[in-house]
């Protein structure tokens, strides 16, 4: 199933806070796309930044070739954020008027905010920025749903499920099933599939 991309390359950023499962989300998403025959280049940083810092994966999806693992500034087509302020952080560097943003609404406070040295914008401020700077945006409580499913770690898969429902990328439940059949042990598949469906249901 290889659908023509609306743009080539399609630039996707998955962002979040170290420990939220950013890397897994980008791997799963890339796997789904590679299985369908696209070239996918992922640029990731991990190591130290996973210690509570901002993390970001660049996914460049193309029908033609691999691309630079870092995309140009202002060049994101889709931003998927596991944490709302991280959506904004990425937006300020890679945003453009046509960008679509899908963000988890659950906040992870930076240490500077916890200590009181910094401020965290309110949810309305965040929504307001998204409204003004994106073509489309969704703010969903993926973590809340994940907790309901029994494990907050599932929020990344919920986001992938939600992404599939937005129709922004050529991915669906079948490609997800195929990917997890390859990369997950059988006992983990049902709960992840449930998370994927939950995510899709949020859009």
């Amino acid at each position: 199933m290889k659908v023509r991309l609306s743009k080539d390359p399609m630039n996707v950023i998955i962002t979040g806070v170290g420990g939220q499962g950013n890397v897994l989300a980008s791997r799963v998403l890339a796997g789904m796309l590679v299985n369908s025959g696209y070239y996918v280049t992922i640029g990731e940083t991990f190591g130290m930044s996973q210690r509570g810092g901002s993390v970001m994966s660049h996914l460049r999806i193309s029908q033609k070739s691999i691309r630079s693992p870092q995309m140009p500034q202002g060049g994101a087509d889709i931003i998927i954020a596991l944490e709302p302020v991280e959506a904004l952080r990425v937006l300020t560097k890679y945003g453009n008027p046509d960008v679509a943003v899908l963000s988890n609404s659950r906040v992870v406070y930076p240490i500077g905010v916890i200590t009181g040295e910094l401020n965290y914008p309110s949810l309305t401020e965040i929504q307001d920025i998204l409204q003004k700077t994106t073509a489309k945006n969704w703010l969903i409580d993926a973590t809340g749903e994940a907790v309901k499913l029994g494990n907050p770690v599932l929020s990344n898969i919920i986001m992938v499920g939600a992404l599939s429902a937005t129709g922004l990328l050529p991915i669906d439940r079948r490609s997800f099933e195929k990917e997890i059949a390859r990369n997950m042990t059988a006992d983990k598949r049902p709960i992840n599939l449930l998370a994927f469906d939950t995510g899709a249901g949020l859009i």
Binding site: V17, M48, R51, G52, E86, L88, P110, G112, I129
Partner: peptide
């Protein structure tokens, strides 16, 4: 607009888990 947004974003310092 982006610059206005940037001013509202708190830095995220690394820390122990």
């Amino acid at each position: 607009e982006l610059r206005k947004a940037a001013a509202l974003i708190p830095a995220r310092e690394l820390t122990f888990c």
